[in-house]
Amino acid sequence: MAEPRFLVVRNDEDQYSIWSAERELPAGWYDAGFAGTREECLAHVDTVWTDMRPRSVREAATA
């Protein structure tokens, strides 16, 4: 059986997570443009989520 597919997803606070490619994405979450196995997705999150501050905190700091 093929390994289940996941998506890397992101919310408005630029917080990342992963979600089954088979399931409907909850409201307020967007496809971050990467799909793969669970492990691949998590590895991808490690490379793209370099600033873990929520977007609102980050923007307030640079304002």
Binding site: N11, Q15, Y16, S17, W19, L25, G28, W29, L42
Partner: peptide, 26 residues
């Protein structure tokens, strides 16, 4: 919580999109 300090993958694995309630929360 916000997540695990400097552990993005682990955070993404344990803090998931919440299908219930307000949009975009975890």
């Amino acid at each position: 919580a916000r997540g695990y300090l400097r552990r993005p993958a682990l955070t993404a694995e344990r803090f998931l999109p919440c299908p219930f309630g307000a949009p975009g929360r975890r």
